[in-house]
Amino acid sequence: MSAEPILSVEGLKVRFGSGRKAFEAVRGVSFELYRDETLSLVGESGSGKTTIGRAIMRVYPAAAGSVRYRGREIAGKVGAEEERLLRQKIQMIFQDPMASLNERAKIDYIVSEGLYNFKLFKDEAERLAKVEKALLEVGLLPEFASRFPHEFSGGQRQRIGIARALAMEPEILIADEPISALDVSIRAQVINLLNKLKRDRGLSYLFIAHDLSVVRFISDRIAVIHLGRLVELAPAEELFERPLHPYTKALLSAVPVPDPDEERDKKLVVYDPASHGYEAGDAPAWREALPGHFVLANEAELRDWTAGG
């Protein structure tokens, strides 16, 4: 991990609608993504995790705050040249491999669509070589290029989606629940693949997920998001060993663990946002509770939560 973040998000807000109907889906989120790092955004439906990913992809405009790629501001208007670069360097992998591939296109076209759009090849031979390389990298045979998506299983389709992103030689991959639609045995294959690509290519992942237990294995750091705000961000192991925010604790207790003895003795922690009792002038802020471990808390909570250790 280098000291300079490849992507930094600061005070990001995303709003839908306008006037009285306006809804703020992301309410001031800040985090950094480093080279070679997997940062996971974990939250429930409606927490805004997907919206953050899409705001970084510049699908949704940011209402406030900044998103910087290698130090350059990319939220809002950018030049044509910059736009081209971003479209190439930040790629996305989607949740549902059944819905995210064009049913009428052959794999060859699906993987090279981005190459066509950005004219990233000199001649036909180079394009074919790039498609072949991308397919081999995700563990598919080059001859699959002439087939259609319906000929593949869910796990293979997810690989095709990954190959499509890789062909663009990206630096950042935003993966929105890439494994939650997959079966247990296929899920393990895709997790291994993502980890291998990160090692081989020095990719950075922004991994969006709802399942903490899966995320632990692949993440370097985990950010927990609740109703459009980050409530906690820490190195993966640290978050599991020392969750500070009550919402993180509730989320951890809700995930069933595959062990009947543990499950029998487990007590469910339920999060009640009213339990904070925040008053005017006592609003919680994003604070560094322990080195590298951030939490949304006010002064008193910070003292309570970090006491005794």
């Binding site: 599991f240 604790k249 951890l252 663990v257 029998r264 003795d265 487990k266």
Partner: peptide, 10 residues
């Protein structure tokens, strides 16, 4: 894992 998370029983 459960103990570390402080959410599981002994």
């Amino acid at each position: 894992a459960g103990r570390a998370a402080g959410v599981a029983g002994a």
